[in-house]
C-alpha cells in the first residue's frame, strides 16, 4: 500500500510534466490540425535555456536559489516562446493551406534542426545539475517503507496546477482565448469575421512553447540531467497523452499526461522498467481502438 502511494506521487509529478508539453500539441492540433513534431524539441530547448540561464546567474553572483529559479523561469519562458514563434514563422506559416503532409514533413525537419543546433552549440554530452531543491516530507511511515514527497514534486504539481488555472482562464475569458476558440472551430470563417488568424496562431505557438519551457525546467529539476535528445521521447509521449485525452481538448491533454505518467511509473514499479514505453504506447493503441476520439475528445462528424 505504501509502495503504491509512493508510485502514485511519482506518477503524478511525471504526468504533470507530460501534461504541460501535451497542451502545446493539443492546442496546435486543435487550431491548424497539424502534428507539431518539433514541439518535443522546443521542450528540450526550454530545458537547455533554463540550465544555461541558471549557470549564468550563478556566474554573475545570484546565489539565492528561489530568486535565481524565478528569474530562470521568466528568461526560459520568454526565450523559448521566441523559439516557438520563430519555428512557426519559418517552417509552418509558408505552408498553411497546403496539403496535410507538408507541414508534418517540415516539422520533422525542424525537429532535426533544433536537435542538431543544440548538439552543436552545447555539445552532445549529458548536462548534469546538482539537486537545487533538496528535502521533502515523509507522509506515512510504516511497514519498513516511508512514503515521501519531495519538495521538487510539490513544486511541479503546484506550478502545473497554477499554470493550468491561468491557462484555462486565458482560453475561456480573454479576447485571445475567444479568437483561439473561433480559429479552432473554423479558420476561414474566423478570418472572415475579423479574427487576425496569423496573430492568433502565432500566439498559440508562443503559449505552447512557454508552457513547454516550464515543463523543461521541471524536467531539469526533477531528473537533474538533460541532453539534446530528451525532446524526442518526451515529445512522443506527450503527443500520446494529447491523443489519449482527446486531441483538441485542454483538460484532456492534462488528463492524458497524468495517465501516461501514472501508467509509466506503475509499469516500471510493478513489471519491468525496460518495457515502460511499450506499456504507454500499448495503452494508446487500445484506447484508440475502443475510444477513437480519446477520453474527453468530441466525436468528429465526417461530412461529405
Amino acid at each position: 500500500m505504501e509502495y503504491f502511494l509512493q508510485q502514485l506521487i511519482n506518477g503524478i509529478a511525471l504526468g504533470s510534466i507530460y501534461g504541460l508539453v501535451a497542451i502545446g500539441y493539443t492546442m496546435v492540433y486543435g487550431i491548424i490540425g497539424m502534428i507539431n513534431f518539433a514541439h518535443g524539441d522546443v521542450f528540450m530547448v526550454g530545458a537547455f535555456l533554463a540550465l544555461i540561464a541558471f549557470l549564468a546567474l550563478l556566474a554573475i553572483g545570484v546565489t539565492a536559489i528561489p530568486l535565481a529559479l524565478f528569474l530562470v523561469l521568466i528568461v526560459a519562458m520568454l526565450l523559448t516562446a521566441l523559439y516557438g514563434w520563430a519555428v512557426e514563422r519559418l517552417a509552418y506559416r509558408p505552408l498553411r493551406g497546403s496539403h496535410r503532409l507538408a507541414p508534418l514533413i517540415s516539422a520533422i525537419g525542424m525537429s532535426i534542426v533544433l536537435q542538431n543546433y543544440v548538439q552543436i552549440a552545447q555539445g552532445a554530452r549529458v548536462k548534469p545539475l546538482p539537486p537545487l531543491i533538496p528535502g521533502g516530507y515523509t507522509l506515512i511511515e510504516g511497514g519498513g517503507f516511508a512514503v515521501q514527497v519531495s519538495n521538487v514534486q510539490i513544486i511541479i504539481v503546484v506550478t502545473t496546477l497554477a499554470l493550468m488555472t491561468v491557462f484555462s482562464w486565458l482560453v475561456s475569458a480573454t479576447r485571445l482565448g475567444r479568437n483561439m476558440r473561433a480559429c479552432e472551430q473554423d479558420l476561414k470563417m474566423a478570418s472572415l469575421i475579423g479574427v487576425d488568424i496569423d496573430r492568433t496562431i502565432s500566439l498559440t505557438f508562443v503559449i505552447g512553447a512557454a508552457l513547454a519551457a516550464v515543463a523543461g525546467i521541471m524536467y531539469l529539476l526533477y531528473y537533474g540531467v538533460i541532453d539534446f535528445f530528451i525532446g524526442f521521447i518526451a515529445g512522443v509521449k506527450a503527443f500520446t497523452a494529447a491523443v489519449l485525452g482527446g486531441i483538441g481538448s485542454l483538460p484532456g491533454a492534462m488528463l492524458g499526461g497524468l495517465l501516461i505518467g501514472l501508467i509509466e511509473t506503475f509499469w516500471s514499479a510493478y513489471f519491468s522498467a525496460e518495457y515502460k514505453d511499450v506499456a504507454a504506447f500499448s495503452i494508446l493503441v487500445l484506447v484508440l481502438i475502443f475510444m477513437p476520439t480519446g477520453i474527453l475528445g468530441r466525436p468528429e462528424v465526417e461530412k461529405v
Binding site: V45, F48, L49, L51, I52, A53, L55, A56, V75, L79, L82, Y83, A86, Y117, V118, A121, Q122, G123, K127
Partner: peptide, 11 residues
C-alpha cells in the same frame, strides 16, 4: 534573442 544563451554561452 534566439542565439543569446544558446550560442553566446557554452556549458
Amino acid at each position: 534573442g534566439l542565439f543569446s544563451l544558446m550560442l553566446g554561452l557554452r556549458t
